[in-house]
Design a protein around this nucleic acid. Sequence first.
DNA 1: GCAACATTGATACATTTAGTACAATTATGA
DNA 2: TCATAATTGTACTAAATGTATCAATGTTGC
Lengths: 138, 138
Amino acid sequence: MTNKKLILQIDFRSGLPIYTQIVNQVQAQIASGILKPDHQLPTVRALAEELRVNFNTVARAYRILDEARIISTQQGRGTFITESLPPKVTERLRREALEALTQRYLSEALRLEFSKSEIRQTVNDQLKTWNEANEPKK
Amino acid sequence: MTNKKLILQIDFRSGLPIYTQIVNQVQAQIASGILKPDHQLPTVRALAEELRVNFNTVARAYRILDEARIISTQQGRGTFITESLPPKVTERLRREALEALTQRYLSEALRLEFSKSEIRQTVNDQLKTWNEANEPKK
DNA sequence: GCAACATTGATACATTTAGTACAATTATGA
DNA sequence: TCATAATTGTACTAAATGTATCAATGTTGC
């Protein structure tokens, strides 16, 4: 049973609309396989309470994901991940997720006036550390 | 609960732009501890009405303070004081800030099961784009 | 004087919150 | 079984809030 709890991190200062952040993160977790088909998402009201956000905002995110056929919202029942998407779609979502995540990171770092070489260096250093830490993964 | 009302004194004859006076006084009140982190500031319209100025002028002051990371403006929600930063950012703190930012980025990317080479590739690609986009900065 | 710039104002817009009502489904209990 | 309540998503309106863009006005330097 994959009863994993949905964990989202909303950044209220990012400038990105909250509903967009929810859409992006759910998409990313589905594309990455963290959320699997038939998995039930939190109710709009429960997720709204957890994120300290109005439930209409969550409903808007769910509606967008539903229209994209990524989740299936069912009145009176709940919200579920749809059957596995075509690999091509999954791959696209995965790539978009990484690009969005990276863009947020870089724009923040550059705004704080870190140089591109500093950033590159830090990313490489930390990746190397992670290499040694948990490389043999499956 | 620190529900202190923001009180500003604008001098319309001082020659200083109104938005500058707002910026200075909010900054001063935060520095002196009158306004504390997470405190919600008046809305641009409420403060504008109180000061008898256009709300765009208040919005401009808030935008400047937001860009300086002193406050956090959130569309549809309001404006809040951010955590106070040390007045002088040392080189060590600078480095720690970048490392923390990078760690958050990488742990999220790795949680989504992106490979280290994918991440490196995406970071480098986007850094290159940024190079061309806004490198010649006057 | 005038051109360039800064400041302020006006207007339309996007986002979030709030509230209410409703339909569909599920759970409960007599 | 059946009636009722609770849960869940949907729809809609209204208001609050910050944002973007351009126009009007004021200031400054030549």
